[in-house]
Design a protein around this nucleic acid. Structure first.
Length: 278
DNA sequence: AAGTTCGTCAACCGCGGGGAG
DNA sequence: GCTCCCCGCGGTTGACGAACT
């Protein structure tokens, strides 16, 4: 049957966007809002396909895009999140305010990937001379005999990750969730998750194992229709691994999206350094 | 100065998920 | 249940500029 191409390529502009096109797109989105990209492309008069418009807006024109170099804190965070999530660029980007998945992906491919692999990266735009080859170190994990692999969600057929367990109300002590405080983000997160009829008889080790994609992911998926990738969010990880409630304050998606909270990257990094963290 | 190599990053491509009919 | 459409994601490409020979 074949899939229809996203747009007819006849008569459409391709390649780099011009300043005029940018202006048109920005003005149109200001007036009509995001979404309906295909319609947007037609209605705005831009000779671009919807995909192209969406990409241009999300990766370049959005007002909240952060420009400039990736900071050291951000870099650390990307490395840690990548270790945890693999190439889930959009999820990683979701934790870095103002950064786009494309930007992070590019940064990883050009810089961090090499770093993470143990290659000493030369300062940017400096080529190595013949006698100054890149030094290749053994990856720390490999050297220790244990290769750290990112979670491969696709390979595990586990795109719908489950939260297999939520502590019962009697477990509240260890999560610092006050059941009386129905307005707290902790409580709301608990409610959201607990309404999914989740099991309550898993140990932390089992949770960790499930979360890391080792073991019964498919079985759990079959036994529970809960959808979404929320387990990939740091707040859920915190719930699972008994991390401090600090996470809920700074790392719930809602807080970030709605209140545009400035995230303390240092605190996150220290949290990742916790021994229980993968 | 000219040519070559390499790094960066915007943009494109194809695929899959999910909703509507 | 099937098909179509829209959207979002991750992988890849290619233009461009800087560094090097």
């Amino acid at each position: 049957m074949g899939r229809k191409p996203c747009c007819s390529k006849k008569g459409l502009n391709r390649g780099a966007w011009t300043a005029i096109e940018d202006k048109i797109l920005t003005a149109y989105i200001k007036d009509h809002g995001e979404g309906k990209w295909r319609n947007l492309a037609k209605s705005s008069g831009l000779k671009r396909c919807g995909k192209s418009c969406r990409l241009r807006w999300l990766n370049y024109l959005r007002p909240d895009i952060k420009r400039g170099n990736i900071s050291h804190d951000e870099e650390e965070l990307i490395i840690r999140l990548h270790k945890l999530l693999g190439n889930r660029w959009s999820l990683i980007a979701g934790r870095l305010p103002g950064r786009t998945d494309n930007e992070i992906k590019n940064y990883w491919n050009t810089t961090l990937g090499k770093k993470a692999a143990g290659v000493v990266v030369q300062s940017s735009k400096k080529r190595k001379s013949a006698g100054d080859q890149q030094t290749v170190r053994e990856p720390p994990a490999a050297a220790a005999g244990t290769l750290v692999q990112p979670i491969r969600t696709k390979a595990l057929n586990c795109t719908k990750v489950l939260v297999p367990v939520i502590p019962s109300p009697s477990d509240h002590d260890c999560h610092s969730i006050n059941p009386e405080d129905t307005n707290s983000s902790e409580h709301q997160a608990y409610q959201t998750l607990s309404t999914n009829s989740l099991k309550t008889d898993y140990t932390t080790e089992q949770l960790y194992s499930n979360f890391m994609g080792i073991g019964c992911c498919d079985e759990l998926q079959a036994s529970n229709g809960t959808s979404n990738n929320d387990l990939s969010t740091a707040s859920d990880c915190s719930l699972l691994f008994d991390q401090p409630t600090l996470f809920f304050k700074e790392w719930t998606m809602n807080d970030y999206l709605q209140d545009n909270v400035t995230i303390d990257l240092g605190s996150l990094a220290s949290l990742f350094d916790n021994e229980e963290w993968p």
